[in-house]
């Protein structure tokens, strides 16, 4: 099965109104080439799930600036003024989620869990509308799984079978998001032959990878 496709072919899997998870932390570990192609294609009304909305000219922020999102679920939007402006003008719905909770909600979806219990957010606006569950005298919020139609992942290396190696702090949300979407598209800096990656260096096993694109290609 050939999973290696062109960036254009990959982006054709993303349609108006879809929910898209995008890896990265303040644009470190964000699949920039896939984001650029998505900006070029101009699909609209996306629900974007990401740690943050990057910057106006870098990372996920470019999609917000191009008004392609109807909703953003993120832990931080402060580095991209346009996200805040669109939110204040009522053009964009923004749901702010504590970072660790967001990671666990995505993980729950990918790992087949019905939700997770966390103390984070108890006694704050984050608890509004959520079920509280007490376990051994500690109060937790029930946070529900978050999944997506498509996940866009940034890898250091991917082999042709789809095994992923990530580099340093470019991991962040990528390995978790790779488990929680129907279609997982990986942009790798380098595509290597199957067998070149040591199984112990593989953080995301090939079974999660739907497609990969060569992010190192000019």
């Amino acid at each position: 099965m050939n999973k290696l496709i062109s960036i254009d072919e990959a982006i054709n899997h993303i349609e108006d109104g879809m929910t898209v998870m995008i890896g990265g932390f303040l644009a470190v570990g964000t699949p920039e080439k896939l984001v650029d192609a998505l900006v070029e294609k101009g699909v609209k009304d996306l629900t974007i799930i990401a740690n943050d909305t990057g910057f106006v000219d870098k990372g996920i922020g470019k999609l917000v600036v191009n008004k392609q999102a109807k909703k953003v679920i993120a832990s931080h939007i402060g580095t991209n003024k346009e996200t805040g402006r669109q939110m204040n003008e009522g053009e964009l719905e923004v749901q702010l989620v504590p970072q660790g909770t967001l990671a666990e909600q995505i993980r729950a979806a990918g790992y087949g869990l019905g939700g997770i219990l966390t103390s984070t957010g108890v006694g704050t606006v984050v608890e509004e509308g959520k079920k509280k569950i007490e376990v051994d005298g500690v109060e937790y919020l029930l946070e529900l799984p978050i999944k997506a139609d498509v996940a866009l992942i940034k890898a250091d290396k991917v082999d042709k079978k789809g095994n992923i190696r990530y580099n340093k702090t470019a991991k962040n949300f990528n390995p978790i998001m790779a488990t929680a979407a129907d279609i997982v598209i990986v942009e790798a800096e380098k595509i290597v032959e199957t067998g070149e990656l040591d199984p112990d260096d593989v953080m995301t096993p090939n079974i999660f990878t739907t497609y990969m694109v060569d992010g190192g290609a000019k």
């Binding site: 993120a74 939007i77 402060g78 939110m87 702010l96 970072q99 660790g100 984070t120 704050t124 984050v126």
Partner: peptide
């Protein structure tokens, strides 16, 4: 005025 988001602060303070 300023709504940057909580980032990891809520988890850090609780944990």
């Amino acid at each position: 005025k300023m709504v940057p988001g909580m980032g990891g602060a809520m988890d850090l303070v609780v944990g």
